[in-house]
């Protein structure tokens, strides 16, 4: 029996993840692949908020950074087990996201973008200035991840872990989208008033998905801290937030596989821009603008629409 159609893309991706190591010839290649996977997971979560529920966050790097530093500080300075520290990050970020979203999302209009922009900046400034705990702009070292006495080391092991987590998060996202909760989220985007008159508490759903997407970022921040072993406040800054939003917009809002492609392209891109690094911010901004003008639906949805028109 074939698996349900909704999972076909997932199987294809699993296959790609399995054969990819044949082409990864050194640890640097693995490292790039791992960062693609990490970004992909973050934007799968962010896309639930932006693409499906139609709410904008310009501060998700803040949640990523907060997760990373919670893990870093608790494991390095207080010898917490990494998994527990990761959980503490989730609770902290979840609570913070809830406290911010609760008053903001009650207001009509796009205040969330403004509020998250401010929140992201505050987080990144706090991480830079509280150097007693964070090491300040110079960053801090973070011990490796260990689980039940098993220490996760080396690019190859991390590759498989991130690969599995990517498949898991896509599976969860696909399930969510095609469920009553997912329809409620999409209805919030499609027509908030229509959603309300059929009994959907739209504010509650907006808060819920904002918190969930923040938690995605926090978890990946924690894992990134352990994987790289060294973090600086740069991971929480505004530019990183814009990178994440650009991945969603370029790949395709409301397309889970689209945003994975967006993460793939935009994580690889800087590798080719090594000698024009100072223009990186500009190039990302340009990609964002050009996509919004010429490919408002994003890469994958546009390709799918083209193919449909071609076969029809």
């Amino acid at each position: 029996m074939l698996p349900p159609k909704r999972y076909h893309g997932l199987l294809l991706l699993a296959f790609i993840i399995m054969i990819l190591p044949l082409f990864l010839t050194n640890n640097f290649h693995y490292d790039v692949a791992i960062h693609i996977g990490i970004n992909a997971i973050v934007v799968v979560g962010l896309n639930l908020l932006i693409g499906y529920a139609g709410q904008i966050s310009l501060g998700h790097a803040g949640f990523f950074g907060l997760g990373a530093y919670t893990s870093g500080i608790l494991t390095a300075n207080y010898a917490w087990p990494p998994l527990l520290a990761l959980g503490a990050g989730v609770i902290l970020v979840g609570l913070l996201a809830f406290l911010v979203a609760h008053p903001i999302l009650r207001l009509k209009g796009h205040y969330l973008a403004m509020a998250t922009l401010g929140l992201g900046m505050i987080i990144s400034i706090v991480l830079s200035t509280e150097d007693r705990y964070t090491g300040g702009p110079d960053g801090m070292t973070v011990p490796s991840f260990s689980l039940f006495g098993w220490e996760i080391l080396g690019e190859q092991n991390w590759y498989w872990i991130i690969g599995c987590l990517l498949l898991l998060s896509i599976w969860l996202a696909l399930n969510l989208i095609d469920s009553p909760v997912g329809r409620a989220l999409r209805a919030v985007h499609g027509s908030e008033v229509a959603a309300q008159v059929v009994g959907i508490d739209t504010i509650r759903y907006k808060i819920l998905i904002f918190v969930i997407s923040a938690i995605f970022a926090s978890i990946m921040g924690s894992l990134t801290a352990h994987y790289t072993g060294f973090i600086t406040p740069v991971i929480a800054d505004f530019f990183h937030s814009i990178e994440l939003v650009t991945m969603v917009v370029l790949g395709g809002m409301a397309s889970t596989f689209g945003v994975v492609i967006g993460a793939f392209i935009l994580t690889l891109l800087p590798q080719f821009l090594a000698n024009v690094e100072e223009y990186e911010v500009m190039i990302f901004g340009l990609i964002l603008i050009l996509t919004m003008i010429f490919l408002p639906k994003g890469l994958l949805p546009t390709l799918i629409a083209l193919k449909k028109r071609h076969t029809a």
Binding site: P180, A184, R186, A187, G190, S191, A194, V198, I200, A254
Partner: peptide, 21 residues
Amino acid sequence: QICFNMTAIENVMMGSHLHLN
């Protein structure tokens, strides 16, 4: 007030929100 980001039948299904898990 139609949700154009969904299929036609999903627009009807969202009406069942209160009766679903």
